[in-house]
């Protein structure tokens, strides 16, 4: 059987809220080392990869590898019934056709149980190669969310260019153009406001803002977002959850036709 308990149930809620508009359904794969998901959006332009480590849970038991297919909209409906402070326990029997979610309030006065029907989902699993990236940028997650939102009111695509000491986001549209530059800033009083750039090679790539805006729904998960870029490769947009795991988004670049 599979059983996992997470005290910060709000985390699970945030993860599902971050991906539910991008992917319709997905298999949640559980094994000894943890809980993971990989899924593409319906246009096969982007890929979501979630991994939550077994030791990030208070209790974790997985007797044999299980793959549980769920419709994200339905999972979201159920998790919305959990309080942000609730502990959440997930439970499923081997070869079971449901997964049970138990929500416990911090004072343990209220205990709720919801069963979600599992589904068979055909999903193509892609191999994500280990890569050394030309540039890695770590910036406050809220800052990135604001940039992609602001640029979306001007254009549909963004060119992200990274040099040694700055990252630039630029767009052009019918009404005009916009450029936002963030300088490297490591030595701030508040570490959550730092911007760090690690570069092997200057790089500039163009991406659809619609997807980046969707990825930015993961902002509540982490103080920072990490962007990894290489010439002619998908961008990686990563949110790390300390001691628990990571939510990564991969987006194929736009090309000149």
């Amino acid at each position: 059987m599979f059983e996992a308990r997470i005290a910060q149930g709000g985390l699970l809620k945030k993860v599902v809220e971050a991906i539910k508009d991008l992917i319709e359904d997905a298999n949640f794969d559980c094994n000894n080392s943890g809980f993971s998901l990989q899924a593409m959006d319906s246009s096969h332009v982007s890929l979501v990869a979630l991994s939550l480590r077994a030791d990030g849970f208070e209790h974790y038991r997985c007797d044999r590898n299980v793959s549980m297919g769920m419709k994200l909209a339905n999972l979201s409906k159920i998790l919305k019934c959990a309080g942000n402070e609730d502990a959440i326990t997930m439970k499923s029997e081997d070869n079971g056709d449901t997964i049970t979610f138990m929500f416990e309030t911090p004072n343990q006065e209220r205990l709720s149980e919801f069963d979600l029907k599992l589904m068979d989902i055909d999903s193509e699993h892609l191999g994500i190669p280990e890569a050394e990236y030309d540039a890695t940028v770590k910036l406050p997650a809220g800052e990135f969310q604001r940039i992609v939102k602001d640029l979306s009111s001007i254009g549909d695509t963004v060119e992200i260019s990274v040099t040694k000491d700055a990252v630039k986001f630029g767009t052009t549209g019918d009404i005009g153009s916009a450029n936002i530059m963030c300088r490297q800033n490591k030595s701030v009083d508040k570490p959550e406001e730092s911007t760090e750039i690690d570069i092997n090679e200057p790089v500039a790539l163009t991406f659809a803002l619609r997807y980046l805006n969707s990825f930015a729904k993961a902002t509540p998960l982490s103080t920072h977002v990490v962007l990894k870029l290489s010439k002619d490769l998908p961008i990686v947009v990563e949110y790390h959850v300390p001691d628990v795991g990571r939510l990564g988004f991969y987006l194929a670049p736009k090309v000149e036709e």
């Binding site: 593409m40 246009s43 096969h44 332009v45 982007s46 890929l47 193509e124 699993h125 892609l126 191999g127 994500i128 190669p129 695509t157 163009t206 659809a208 490769l233 998908p234 991969y250 987006l251 194929a252 670049p253 736009k254 090309v255 000149e256 036709e257």
Partner: peptide, 14 residues
């Protein structure tokens, strides 16, 4: 104009 590539072009099926 700019074309959108598919993510499957970059990551092989596993």
């Amino acid at each position: 104009s700019r074309g959108q590539r598919s993510i499957t072009m970059f990551f092989p099926g596993g």
